[in-house]
């Protein structure tokens, strides 16, 4: 199971880093989402992988599954979820205002030039 988890985290991180370095906003958003998945699994695994243990301390059982990483992961999921939603809206706003979906946008100096360029495009 350790191998599987390790390979999963590695693959997710690699794909996430690759996509984050892309030039267009949508792959970047997907890449950041994959990175967030990778870190969630990583956090979860940091409580050590256990099978068949109670979630809270039980006098009968020999050990227990660490509940803290689960709480951390929950917090991290909620935050990543919210910020990804925000980022998607921002990416849409930027593609609407800059006229393309490149992360670097148009290389012009002022807002007036953007308006002018967009006028000639449409």
């Amino acid at each position: 199971m350790e191998w599987l988890i390790a390979i999963t985290i590695g693959t997710l991180t690699t794909a996430g880093v690759y996509l984050t370095l892309r030039a267009r906003t949508f792959p970047v958003v997907v890449g950041l989402t994959l990175l967030a998945y990778a870190v969630n699994v990583f956090l979860f695994a940091m409580g050590r992988l256990t099978i068949g243990q109670p979630g809270v301390i039980d006098a009968e059982a020999l050990g227990y599954a660490d509940p803290l990483p689960q709480a951390l992961v929950l917090t991290a999921i909620v935050i990543a979820f919210a910020i990804t939603a925000f980022l998607i809206v921002l990416a849409l706003k930027s593609s609407g205002e800059l006229g393309n979906d490149h992360v670097d946008g148009l290389t012009v100096d002022s807002d007036e030039e953007v308006t002018r360029l967009k006028g000639t495009n449409s």
């Binding site: 906003t25 921002l90 930027s94 992360v103 946008g105 148009l106 308006t115």
Partner: peptide, 10 residues
């Protein structure tokens, strides 16, 4: 402003 949006995205 478009410049502001671009910088904010980064």
């Amino acid at each position: 402003g478009a410049q502001r949006t671009k910088a904010s995205l980064h």
